[in-house]
Design a protein around this nucleic acid. Structure first.
Lengths: 200, 200
DNA sequence: CTATATTTGCTAACACTGTTAGGTAAATAT
DNA sequence: ATATTTACCTAACAGTGTTAGCAAATATAG
């Protein structure tokens, strides 16, 4: 019988309406301004209806977090495929990460700019291994190429991510409206410096 | 007459009581958990009394922000004085910055981990020039030593801060409880890499 | 010393948050 | 036609930041 299925479809529709609406609010007013009441108003249902589809507000945020991490993973994997040369791969990954952050500011803030609302984003990082493999493998290749296998690639992996995150965070703080040119240069400078350091 | 003065003293005392109490709450429960009501309860006065001394909650946060930036500035200046060699200066500044962040987690979160409560921390960064001078000067010296005066020291300055901030943020996210050893190594690795890069 | 002015502090409210208990009415199943 | 599940809502609780308005304590002036 199709009734149960229609009900499931309607339930899914409602769930996705909630997410769409929430996303619109975030885009227009920021994460700080997202509230259950605003969502309820916008979908023209009462508040508890939202709670029929999400246990609480954090569950909604985590849903977006999951989406964000999936998108980021995809982008980084695509970037890596562009070349076979490990140094070029690292540069491409850095570039893709950078682009993800600024083309999807809302995602990035939610995923990495802690403290938005006591939301434990760690819960939805895919497997820690995905990013690690993605970056650590080319790093190890470069180290081998340069006969520096003894160097701790785990260390270099952490350094790589930290540098990337720092560059982006500082830019998002946006104290000093630096021009786009300089920003791209800072990225290139820092990452190429890191890569060079692997080989010297 | 001393009456007006006593009143001023009492007013100052109350103000400082509010700050002390607020700081205690933050230390025990975090920034998210700081509220005007809790402060009022703790000082055993009613809510509006708090508003007699601070225009709003943001004003309290900004006060702490100011304190934080002052302390950080002092620590960095002290670190720089420890040596005359610009490379050693940079390393010492990096080290001092790192120590500040983890010995004063609450300050650092407030100052740089945006989004705590729509608080515009930029308002209380001392002069942008202070940090800039502090770091840019040794950078320029190193560049000169190595006859690379054409290199953009402003670029290198931004890279330096971004790297520092990234290292600390990533560690504060604390996904993967890396041991202290590795953390210090990541710092040394990244910063010494940067410094080397100035001289190559 | 009394009367006026000022400062001090409080109660109570408004407009928001997240969240939930409990009831009603409609849709479905028996 | 009756019973049951589902969908949905009203109303509330416990928080948040913030402010208007009033009462009591204190200081100043006559």
């Amino acid at each position: 019988m199709g009734i149960a299925e229609r009900r499931l479809r309607q339930k899914d529709q409602m769930r996705s309406d909630i997410l769409t609406t929430a996303w619109k609010i975030v885009k227009e007013e920021g994460w700080q301004s997202l509230s259950i009441r605003k969502i309820a108003d916008a979908i023209e249902y009462s508040i508890p209806v939202v709670y029929d589809h999400f246990e609480n507000k954090e569950a909604i945020l985590l849903e977006f977090g999951k989406q964000g991490f999936e998108l980021l993973t995809k982008k980084l994997q695509q970037a890596k495929k562009k070349s076979e040369d490990p140094a070029e791969q690292l540069m491409a990954i850095a570039d893709a990460y950078w682009n993800f952050a600024f083309k999807n500011k809302e995602y990035y803030q939610l995923m990495f700019q802690v403290g938005i609302s006591g939301c434990e984003m760690e819960k939805c990082i895919p497997q820690q291994s995905v990013f690690r493999e993605l970056v650590q493998e080319p790093i190890e290749k470069i180290l081998k190429q340069n006969k520096k296998a003894e160097v701790n690639s785990c260390l270099k992996y952490h350094t790589f991510w930290s540098v990337m995150h720092g560059l982006i965070s500082i830019k998002m703080l946006g104290n000093t409206e630096i021009d786009e040119e300089l920003n791209k240069m800072v990225l290139e400078d820092a990452v190429s410096g890191l890569i060079k350091n692997l080989g010297k």
